[in-house]
Amino acid sequence: MALKTIQPGSAPPHAPSAPKTNARDRAERRLAFRMTAPSLILMALVAAVPIGYALWLSLNQYSVRTAGLSRFVGLENYINALASHEWWAAFGQTFLFAGLSVTLELILGTAMALLLNLAFKGRAVLRTVVLLPYAIVTVVSAITWQTMFQPNLGLVTNVLSALGLPGGDVVWLGEHGYAMAVIVLADVWKTTPFAALIILAGLQVISSETYEAAELDGASKWQTFLHITLPLLRPAIVLAAIFRTLDALRVFDLPFVLTRGANGTESMSMLAYTELRENRLVGEGSALSILTFLTVMVVSVIYIRFGGGNIRDVAKEEQ
């Protein structure tokens, strides 16, 4: 589109010279294609080939007895997976985890970004410091949380007991509901800074003139936030939501370390891992991986289609 407008000799479509321009257009497109071909091929190799290979694996059953022996079973692995209680339990649990953790991360992330956007002494240092949880390897932070929630010994359980609050005598990782709460908490602690950083970037592009105009019109702080900050922040929040949701739906390390999937915390990725790595059931495991992949893809398409409306609006405005 942009290319067309800057062409010096471009004529309206109904002009007699139109066929000539079309020929030039085609040549132009061929050139564009040739120039992008290397990166397209590279992307195909890096992304499409492994996915295609996994798809092929998922349509076969592989012998556990004899390496390399396999038979084609079509969609049988998928049918078995979709008919199993395990898959749907993991599906529901993964979405519960993603829903809870992403919602909390966006609320806390927005609050954090607003604080970090204020002008105060030591702001630069604080912006770096809040990122620390995000820099810690998830498995390490998971082990730390496990220790903190340990009955009798853990920091959290001891503090709750000392303060006489409920929960001090709960075996957090050993109970339905509580175990999920710990996993959500560990994820929120770790990735809220990431959401905050994206939202902070969105906050910084809102021009101060808008705020000044609102102030002159006598808008209160709350009105300013609700009618100016929040709508203008929406693209950034949607972006953070997309990143976080896609990550959350693929969650593996937190439940793997904290509960091994016990007490209603097994995720879709854990299920695929068990079949692929522990049981060496390559076909079944690949089918579960593809199902996870499809789930994540559908969710991202929904986000972009419905949540990301203003990403396209912004693009239109620029044109």
Binding site: S63, R71, E76, A81, A83, S84, H85, E86, W87, N279
Partner: peptide, 12 residues
């Protein structure tokens, strides 16, 4: 895990 896994006769 129980994924209703069938036996695997590899010749057919």
């Amino acid at each position: 895990m129980d994924l209703n896994r069938p036996a695997l006769p590899l010749h057919n």
